[in-house]
Amino acid sequence: MARRVPTGPVLGRALSILEAFGPRHTRLTLTDLARRAGLPLSTVHRLAGELVSWGALERDAAGRYSVGLRLWEVGSLAPRGLGLRERALPYLEDLSQVTHENVQLAVREGAEVVFVERIAGSRAVPVHTRVGGRFALSATGVGLVLLAHAPREVQEEVIGGPIERFTAYTVTDPQALRRLLADVRANGFAVSDRQVTEDALSVGAPIRDPHGAVVAALSLVVRHGTVSPHALAPLVLSSARAISRTLT
């Protein structure tokens, strides 16, 4: 269910309509939009019409709404996504071609990971991530890297939980997670072993700006048991350092 926005400013209500869409809710009827946005049907009907006119929404012959291309065009201009992706893409493609595995690029938005790019390798294990999708900071390879280098208040917010459990191997104990983040900082890379799915292992490394601040993370996701994470780490670190150099 979309996050409820009080029936107040028009902008807030329009945003609540856009938030009603999700990976499993890409086409919605007017009634679905009103229910998921928590707004009156008449309000949604009026605002949806304005959003369609602008191009933020599209309406098909059956009367169902979907996110419009105009919104995608505007969103693609976000500097943290577009500029980073363009600089990183050649190195992501090289890493994918060498390993034939999943390669992911992500940034932190608050207490979540936002995936900027993902390349699926020919031998890749299935993953739950998608470009533009969000995930918990505490479980994935990129998430652990970003969390380890996040401001202290963000770390405390995540560690203070509740920490979502995805598999029996997900680290949910606060002290164990603190130790894991300390290891990430000490080793220079993160290992997420079966924390998201029981058949996947992820190795992540930080991407830094010219001042040394971690602005993004890169990861390689492979099938658990096929290769040692320490064998993957040099490849991931090398690619992350190469991308970092392009940001200068």
Rank of each mutant, 00 (worst) to 15 (best):
T167W: 12
R118C: 07
G121A: 10
G81F: 04
R178T: 13
T140D: 01
A136Q: 14
V125L: 05
V142E: 10
V113S: 02
L147K: 12
Y169H: 14
F135T: 05
R178D: 06
R87I: 00
F166L: 07
I159N: 05
H149C: 05
G83D: 14
L137G: 03
F135M: 10
L77D: 11
N102H: 12
V154C: 08
N102W: 03
E157G: 01
H149S: 12
V127M: 05
L146E: 11
L177S: 00
T140C: 13
R87Q: 09
V127W: 01
V158Y: 10
R185Y: 01
L92Q: 02
A120V: 15
G75F: 07
R118M: 14
E164Y: 00
S76D: 07
P79E: 02
Q155H: 04
A88H: 04
V145G: 13
F115P: 01
E112R: 11
G121N: 01
R108H: 09
G110L: 02
A136F: 12
A124D: 08
L181A: 03
D94Q: 13
I159T: 01
R185N: 06
G121T: 00
V131I: 13
G110E: 03
R134H: 14
Q175E: 15
V74R: 13
L89E: 12
N187L: 09
F166W: 15
V131T: 14
I159S: 04
G132I: 00
A106H: 06
A139C: 14
L177Y: 02
V127I: 02
V113T: 11
D94S: 11
L177I: 09
V145Q: 12
T99K: 02
P162N: 03
G132F: 06
V125C: 11
V127F: 02
A182P: 04
I119M: 05
A148T: 04
A186K: 06
P151L: 03
A168W: 10
L82T: 12
E86Y: 06
D173F: 04
T129C: 11
A148D: 05
F189G: 05
L137Q: 08
V131L: 07
N187C: 06
